[in-house]
Design a protein around this nucleic acid. Sequence first.
RNA 1: GCCGCUAUCGUCUAGGGGUCAGGACACGUGGUUCUCAGCCACGGGACCGGGGUUCGAAUCCCCGUAGCGGUACCA
Length: 498
Amino acid sequence: MRVRFAPSPTGQLHVGNARTALFNWLLAHGKDGTFILRIEDTDAERSTRESEAGILEDLRWLGLDWDEGPDVGGLHGPYRQSERLHLYASYANELLTGDHAYYCFCSPSRLDEERKADLAAGRPPKYHGTCRSISIEDARARIDAGERPVIRFKIPENVDIAFQDLVRGEVTFSSDVIGDPVIVRSDGRPQYNFAVVVDDALMEITHVIRGEDHISNTPRQVLLYRALGFTPPEFAHLSLVMGPDHTPLSKRHGATSVYEFRERGYLPEALVNYLALIGWSPGGDQELLPIQELARRFALEDVGHSAGVFDPEKLAWMNRHYMKEAAPARLAAETARFFLARGYLRRRTDEGMEYLISVLPMAVGSVDRLEEIPDRLKFLFEFDPIAALAREEVAGVLHEAGARDVIAALPDAIDRPLADRESFRAMANRVKDRTGMKAKALFHPIRIALTGEGGGPELDLAVPAIERGAALPSSAGVAPIVACRERAVAFAAAVTRR
RNA sequence: GCCGCUAUCGUCUAGGGGUCAGGACACGUGGUUCUCAGCCACGGGACCGGGGUUCGAAUCCCCGUAGCGGUACCA
């Protein structure tokens, strides 16, 4: 089995296309097949090397590695259509001499008028076949005289073209609704439908798995295979991914490219797992599955027929799951950039990374994305009693019975750094004895005094983290962290002054 | 317009002539003796409409309707 993913390098990798790539990859890996990456860059105006590089990077990030492709080579290369132009020219010529194709000199404006007339008359708009009868000798003479024709493929009249779609079953089109398609443009570049057929045939692709938007291209491709003397591959058309309003997923729905998801702090395994579940079900009740297991269970027969809505909430849920599963060291490596951006980390040092690793677990699992972690841990690096008390969330706690007493008792109770859970608990007990406050009435004021926030990670974890951070030398490259005692003093003073 | 594809909770889906129509996300309620988040438990919530076939249809067939795709010298 040989499958391929064939993106156009005209922008970032869209999650819908990533899903197509994933399904191909899953099939290849579940069936011991070969996964090929081919770059469809015949649209010279829109294709760029930058987006090609970006797409390759995104695919690798997702873990969708390929066996043959533009960068790794292979026996069926080259793997960029722009480097295969001679092949298309040669096959176009074959079609021309075999009377399966002809030169067409019709002007765009004439074509446009015909199309409008067809539409107005309620006919399917298609090429009228004006140039079909021009002999190849006459055509060559006109070319020599300077005209620049396109080459069209002859669609036989009045035949049904049927193919077996591995996800949808038999699909039939009448050739009468298909006009003779352009296969080579006037500038000599091949048109999509033609290039794909030549490439898929030459690359010996056995299963073409692609988006549903290609389903109506398939009949003309099947005809092309036959005219070229190739056996058509198996086809499978995947339904498209939609936005919540059931229109094609686009920028106005939020993030749509793999790159954006990566930038926002989604883990690749979360995106992969989520994408696999749009339009496919592994069966059973278990949805959280590693990519290898997805591959093991994947079957085209189980792929759904209808379009799926992309649900960022469910992706977020999966991302939380995978963040909790990820090793802290990996998480720290992935998250450091966000801490750097916020200034919480001034540079990457071993000591700074160790600190990150120690504090990350209390934040992970309560946020949707890595990007949100610094905010969840903001209390470590930013402590400003005045600003905190200006917020209702914090100031409101002062009205709770005994809150002011607890806050006043705090500085003296913290007679040494609260380096671990036990010393924090012991300190809390001292305040409890002194003020008579307990449970919420005790801990809530302690929280605002020590963190400046009304909510946040468990104090058992948060307080020792503050003290560990405060003990860090400046060489650790971590933004200065104020110790608990100092915090308590400053906060109590701010409350009194108020 | 024409051609094609599609149709189960709000969303992703399982099921596929007789099921209490199952699960997940989201939502609601409660719990988790510091909070938010999380987590746990419980709960509400669906077979597009109409015909047919059948003892019986969400399931098969037909017709509607709706959504999507195509109808390019884009891919």
